[in-house]
Amino acid sequence: MESTDRDDGPAFQSVFENRVRFAETDLQGIVFYGEYFTFQDEAVTEFFRQIGYGFEEMIDRGWQTHVANTELNYREGAELGDVIENELRVVEFGTASFTSEYRARRKDDSSLLADGTVTHVAVDLETDETIPVPDEFREAIAAFQGGLESIE
């Protein structure tokens, strides 16, 4: 299975850590695969919050994002009590969309547990129609990641 990581582009930002809870494990004692989608979503939410665009701020500005696609690759199992470091970076902008790469690593040994992508579209709150990704949002991401030139 090939990694979704690109060799070029912005550095991953560590945005969210979580300790594996019993409820997140399966009968094999490892994190149930579906939980990684929740971890990915929490990483996106925290990334937005850290750039000053939590969902409340987006709504105050009259727009929000909807997930258009998400993919995850499972690399290694995490177990009860493991601390997972969740990382994210925006790697591509379209007119009304942007794509982020996600990865989850076990904190104590940096083992890659899962990686993947998530694509969001910008949506007007009143019309529920797609809109161009606001320039201010693009600029906030660029500032957080170190510049737009690293984002396609």
Rank of each mutant, 00 (worst) to 15 (best):
Y74I: 05
E57T: 15
E79C: 03
E35A: 11
F39S: 08
L27Q: 14
T70W: 00
F37C: 14
F22C: 03
E46H: 02
F39N: 08
A23R: 10
E71F: 12
T25Y: 09
N18K: 09
L27Y: 07
R19T: 03
R61M: 03
E17C: 08
H66I: 14
G34Q: 02
T70K: 03
F55R: 12
T70R: 05
T70H: 01
D60Q: 12
E17K: 14
Q40D: 03
G29M: 01
R21Y: 11
E57P: 05
Q64Y: 08
T45H: 13
L27P: 09
N18I: 14
G54M: 07
E46D: 09
Y53T: 04
N73H: 15
Y36Q: 03
T45C: 12
A23T: 02
T65S: 10
R75W: 06
W63K: 09
R61L: 03
E35R: 15
Y33V: 11
V44E: 12
F22K: 04
N73Q: 15
G34E: 01
R49V: 05
T65C: 08
F55C: 06
I59Q: 15
E76F: 09
N18Q: 13
D26C: 05
V44G: 06
E42R: 15
E76D: 02
E57F: 13
Q40P: 04
E24F: 05
T70L: 09
A68I: 12
E76T: 04
A43P: 00
I59N: 13
A68M: 15
I51M: 05
E56I: 15
E76Q: 13
R61G: 04
T45F: 10
A78Y: 00
L72D: 03
E24N: 07
Y53M: 12
E57G: 07
D41W: 07
E76I: 00
R75D: 02
A68E: 04
A43M: 05
T65L: 08
V20A: 11
Q28C: 03
Y74R: 01
N69H: 12
N18S: 15
G52L: 06
L72I: 13
E42L: 13
F39L: 14
E46K: 08
F32W: 13
V20C: 06
R49D: 10
R75F: 00
Q50I: 01
A23V: 09
